[in-house]
Design a protein around this nucleic acid. Structure first.
Lengths: 204, 204
DNA sequence: TCAATATGCGAGTGAACGCTCACATTCACA
DNA sequence: TGTGAATGTGAGCGTTCACTCGCATATTGA
């Protein structure tokens, strides 16, 4: 009977040295992914860029997919943390403020590492780990939905699910579009203001 | 000196038989792309599914990328035609009507072949031919911009570029989101109505 | 009818890639 | 300082894949 294909790492890092290796591998993965794209980011090239051997890579990541998945996790966690913190602050804020700040934090989150974000969203094969990204989008929708529920007396639309769907998608799309295709727009306040107007007018 | 890599097809189809081969190859490409995803859609499998040999495939398409590019062209042309026709009809229509119909036609265009559209947008490696898709998005923005220009007396925002950017991205994003992730939403009229409200309220 | 041309075939080629494993080096701790 | 465990190495294995080429078959037009 052939050994079943490996699905978990052989080792988890125990010593400092090993933790450093894992770190340097993730950094290199991000760099190579941005520079070469997913398809040309071979494990050999990644290991080389990390100054580490392929063997070491496979000590801590059972597959190329797992390596990229770990990077996605790290990146999305950074974005999520930023968003969740702001959301907690804004729970009681009036609509106009909440909307404006929500848009600001979305833009800030997308600016953490825009080029990596782009590669992850655009190139990493779906059906593997990219559910992680959709998970974040779905979480945003839940946050919006909760806010609308708490403020439903100040809000015009009666179908809150629909309103949350629209609002979350709109902010996500504009942020995405701006960060990825029109970075210049981000430096003017006009985008934030216009988007705020758009959403506030819809909700009130 | 090594022969430069081939960039154009060896032959263009002249006989009916050859045109049929090209057609059957494109159909098979669409099917395999949807079923297997880009990475697992090998040229061998595509030729097999088309009931044609790999050799024949390479008679008409110089590379796998060219084959997929041709499919993208075909698919996007179908969507674009639908959109442009409606846009011409709507040039003189009042805002409320134009917005509602624009949203409807966007949804209809995305429904031509949603599963193929999804694969093309999500999986096909960028930096190759997928500019074709962005080209369509940019064309939509131009159409919106032209409409706003012609109706600028009825429209509130003064920065028409910004307004066109927001409007086009919003409709595109909602359509996309609905077609790909919430197909159920498409069967109610509510989505169209709410989105229309969103845009009309912003523009007036 | 027949030759020139167009189309179709598919085993085979070479390169790239993910991943393994036998071995070398470094570290923790007695 | 010695020893077992942890960590690191990289040549090479097996496989997949895009693509080629020499040849077979079908079509066209004279």
């Amino acid at each position: 009977m052939p050994p079943r294909p490996r699905t978990i790492a052989r080792k988890i890092p125990a010593q400092e040295r090993a933790k450093a290796t894992v770190d340097v591998l993730l950094e290199a993965t991000a760099r190579i992914l941005v520079k070469e794209g997913y398809d040309h980011a071979s494990t050999t090239r990644i290991a080389e860029a990390a100054g580490v051997s392929v063997g070491s890579l496979y000590q801590y990541f059972p597959s190329k997919e797992a390596l990229v998945a770990a990077l996605i996790d790290r990146h999305m966690a950074a974005m999520t943390t930023m968003i969740e913190e702001k959301a907690a602050e804004l729970a009681m804020a009036p609509l106009a403020v909440a909307v404006r700040e929500a848009i600001r934090v979305m833009i800030a989150a997308h600016r953490i590492d825009p080029r990596l974000h782009r590669v992850l969203v655009e190139q990493v094969p779906r059906l593997g780990r990219l559910q992680r990204i959709e998970q974040v989008e779905s979480r945003s929708r839940t946050l919006v939905r909760a806010y609308l529920e708490a403020h439903k007396d100040e809000v015009r639309p009666r179908d809150l699910d629909m309103a949350a769907f629209l609002t979350a998608h709109v902010v996500e799309a504009i942020t995405h579009g701006a960060v990825l295709h029109e970075p210049a727009l981000l430096d003017s306040e006009a985008l934030v203001e216009e988007t705020t107007t758009l959403i506030v007018r819809y909700l009130t």
